[in-house]
Amino acid sequence: MTTPNDAPYKYLQFKGDQCYRRYIEEDIPAKSPPVTPKKQDLLKVKSHGSYGALLFHPNWKARRKEILHRDMHRCVHCRSDKDLQVHHRQYQFIASEQKFRLPWEYPDRLLITLCESCHNKGHNKYKVPTITI
Score class of each variant (00 low, 15 high):
Y106M: 05
N59F: 11
L114G: 03
Y106C: 03
D83N: 13
H88I: 07
K125M: 13
K127Y: 08
A95Q: 14
E97T: 06
C78S: 12
F14N: 06
V76E: 03
E25S: 10
S32Y: 12
K99I: 07
S47Y: 05
N59I: 00
R74V: 03
D108R: 14
H57S: 13
G122V: 02
H88T: 08
S96H: 08
E66K: 07
Q90H: 12
H69K: 15
Y11S: 09
R70S: 09
L55T: 04
A53G: 13
H87L: 10
L102H: 01
C78V: 12
G122L: 04
Y91P: 00
L111V: 08
Y91V: 03
F56Y: 12
D71N: 15
D27N: 12
Q98P: 00
C118L: 10
L43D: 06
L110H: 14
H119K: 06
G16C: 07
E66F: 02
Q98R: 14
S32N: 11
K121M: 08
K82I: 14
K127S: 10
L68V: 09
D108V: 11
Q92I: 15
A7I: 00
L42C: 08
E66S: 05
R74I: 02
P29R: 02
K15H: 09
C75L: 06
E66Q: 14
G49A: 10
P33L: 10
F100C: 02
